[in-house]
């Protein structure tokens, strides 16, 4: 029996070297060579300055921006505290929060009371960093954004259509709009108009 003790210890060492060091370093090397942009976090630069990652949602509050989903990550889109609300379906905190956010959403977007709201607009995502909103959610916000920026609503809706990603292969996942990309396109447009 004691004969197995030496292999046990050495096997832990060998496996640690192989899977804990060699493997991740090899992968890092290849990944950095083949896909440098993705391997470094899909970061976006604007005028030479980092403004975020295409994959990580960020908060927008003013009427001139498209708003992301409500976030449970820290005080909202805190990427060091990813996570959901983890509130259960009968929790009065959850229901109260949805009621309040629904009222706010209708008010901001000039919807009549009891107008139906897309389910992603008033619920918190799993990661708290969801970069996307549903196309329906984006379209409802279009009028508000157009008014705040003095843009024709058709232009804003055209931007949404351009930034909408359909299901992968027409099958997988859900149609979605990346909020940061949409807002970046919006900022570019407003800037060009001012020129």
């Amino acid at each position: 029996m004691l004969k197995q003790l030496r292999p046990a210890i050495l096997m832990v060492v060998v496996m640690t070297v192989l899977t804990g060091f060699i493997y991740p370093f090899v992968i890092t090397g290849i990944a950095q060579a083949l896909f440098p942009k993705q391997a470094n976090g899909s970061l976006i630069r604007r005028h030479g300055r980092l403004v975020g990652s295409r994959l990580i949602g960020q908060n927008f509050t003013g009427p001139e921006w498209f708003h992301p989903r409500p976030s449970a990550a820290g005080s909202g889109y805190d990427a060091t505290q990813s996570g959901g609300s983890n509130l259960g379906p009968t929790n009065r905190l959850l229901i109260g929060r949805v009621r309040q956010l629904a009222q706010q959403y209708r008010k901001e977007n000039g919807l009549p009371p009891n107008a139906p709201i897309p389910s992603d607009a008033v619920t918190e995502s799993a990661s708290g960093l969801d970069p996307d909103i549903s196309p329906a959610n984006a379209r409802i916000q279009a009028a508000r954004v157009a008014r705040a920026r003095g843009l024709p609503i058709g232009t804003v809706k055209g931007l949404i259509a351009r930034c909408t990603r359909d299901r992968t292969l027409g099958l997988l996942g859900e149609p979605r709009v990346n909020v940061l990309e949409l807002n970046l396109a919006l900022a570019r447009l407003s800037r060009n108009q001012r020129k």
Binding site: S85, L94, D120, A126, A136
Partner: peptide, 19 residues
Amino acid sequence: VETRASVGQPGGNMEGKEV
């Protein structure tokens, strides 16, 4: 809040889920 899926939004229980 819509719980029926329609073109452009997923419906259902989206609390704690990603778009």
